[in-house]
Amino acid sequence: MQLLVTVILTLWVSWARGQEITCDPPLIENSHYIPKRTNYELGQEITYYCTTGFFPSSRGNTATCTDKGWDPPPRCSLNPCELPKLKHGLLYKEDTYRSYFPAPIKQWFYYSCDENYVTPPESFWHYITCTQDGWTPEVPCLRKCVFNDLKHVRTPPKEQRLLQGQSIKIDCLPGYSLLNPQSTVTCTEKGWSSLPRCIKHCDMPTFENARAVITGRPFRLNDTLDYQCLDGYENRDGSTNGTMVCGEDGWLHLPTCFKSADKCGPPPPINYGAITSIPLEVYPPWSRVEYQCQDYYELRGPQYVTCSSAKWSEPPRCIVPCVISEKIMNAKNIQIKGKNDKTYYAKTGDIIDFMCKSGRKAATSKESFQAMCLEGTVEFPICE
């Protein structure tokens, strides 16, 4: 109860004090005002009119009684302008001029603008002039916006400049678009209305044996698109749906939906060789794998095999090399010309030049000392 009484008393005191605050009639030279009273309560307003040749405050010709007096302070002067407040620039020398009384005094200031802002004529110095309607130009310093480092843009050209309030249409190269759906950007006091940057987008792809779950265009960089395989089809991992990602070069991981009956198992094995990739349990149709042979073995046949209609194409085979060991050459008292290898490997079709060891003479024909490797076998000459 005591707290309630305290609150009521506080509110009453505040109201009483507000009732005590009044404003005396204003003293405005070269004018008359209405309504005229001996005093004015808070919130009451007057309207004043200046005599010919004089001008009211640039904030208007009305004033309101406040706890700090009349606001804005009413006045009638020969100059219709108050000291200008220059945004994004600096005032310099002030000049005034009056041709004859009671014409108002002509007043202007020279000024310059901050970095990234320019005067309306785009000169370093300009002047702001007082008129009956206020200061002109109304916006002394205009923001300057410049296109820099524009990538993937057809028009406008680089280094093109716009001033505050101007707009321009941006035309991106095919496959690119602005960050927002609009194609026009505007130079504002704080810079571009939106970032004038063309980024990669992906159009709705053409599906084969699949359909999009959610449609829409264009898709931005890193946007995803879910798809679902048609009935009776599945993708590489055996599921019936998947997700695509819009990348720098277009869609990544395009759908590979295929009939389950057309898939292949692991590629066929070959002697002395294997595929170059990690084998999978299931391969979709038209998958292709590469084979390679062990060292010194020669690949004979197709390097790649393809899955088609649940079958792999014919794999290659690896041809055995000819192995010429030191033991064999010692037994026949021969050696390879220009070679000191204890063991020498030759591929099928290679010609090997032999010679007798020092102090030995040929026991076979001269032609036998040029032998050919044929799938792992070679006829050796003999020396005694």
Rank of each mutant, 00 (worst) to 15 (best):
I319D: 11
L254Y: 09
C202K: 05
P104V: 00
T64Y: 06
D237R: 12
D114I: 02
T364Y: 13
C81L: 12
P104Q: 13
I170Y: 04
Q294D: 14
E115R: 12
T38H: 07
V139M: 07
Q228V: 15
K106P: 00
C81K: 05
D353I: 11
D171W: 00
K85G: 06
I382C: 00
P72A: 07
L280H: 07
K342R: 15
E314P: 13
S123M: 03
Y33R: 04
D226W: 08
R154V: 09
C257I: 11
D262V: 00
E281F: 08
Y110R: 12
K263C: 08
C187K: 08
E384D: 11
I34A: 14
T136P: 00
C264H: 08
S99D: 12
E82H: 06
M204K: 11
A363I: 00
R17D: 04
D114M: 04
A261R: 14
C356R: 10
N39P: 00
R59W: 03
T240R: 12
G165T: 02
R197L: 13
A331M: 06
D71I: 13
E314F: 10
N180S: 14
G238I: 12
L91G: 13
Q2L: 15
L280I: 00
C145Y: 08
R220W: 03
L9T: 09
P269L: 08
K87A: 14
T377P: 01
L225T: 02
V213M: 14
I168P: 03
P269R: 11
A16C: 07
G349N: 12
P285W: 01
N61S: 15
W251F: 04
L27I: 11
P321S: 07
G301N: 02
T186P: 02
V323N: 01
I199R: 10
D223H: 15
W125R: 09
Q44Y: 01
Q132N: 09
F101E: 11
Y296N: 11
Q164A: 03
S77F: 03
Y283D: 10
S358M: 09
L178F: 05
S58P: 14
L86P: 03
V5S: 11
V282I: 13
Y344Q: 02
W70I: 00
A212P: 15
D171E: 14
L150Q: 09
G69S: 06
T240N: 11
E314H: 08
S260N: 05
T343P: 02
H253M: 06
V5W: 09
N61L: 02
L42F: 07
P140Y: 06
T188G: 04
W70L: 02
T215A: 10
I324Q: 03
L9V: 13
L42N: 06
K158I: 07
L178E: 06
P137K: 07
A331N: 14
T119L: 01
L78H: 14
N333H: 15
F354A: 07
I328W: 09
M244F: 07
A371D: 05
Y117I: 02
S183R: 14
S183N: 15
P321L: 10
N235R: 15
Q303M: 09
P25V: 01
P74D: 10
I105S: 05
A210V: 06
K68T: 13
A363E: 12
D223S: 14
I170T: 05
D223G: 07
T136W: 02
W286D: 15
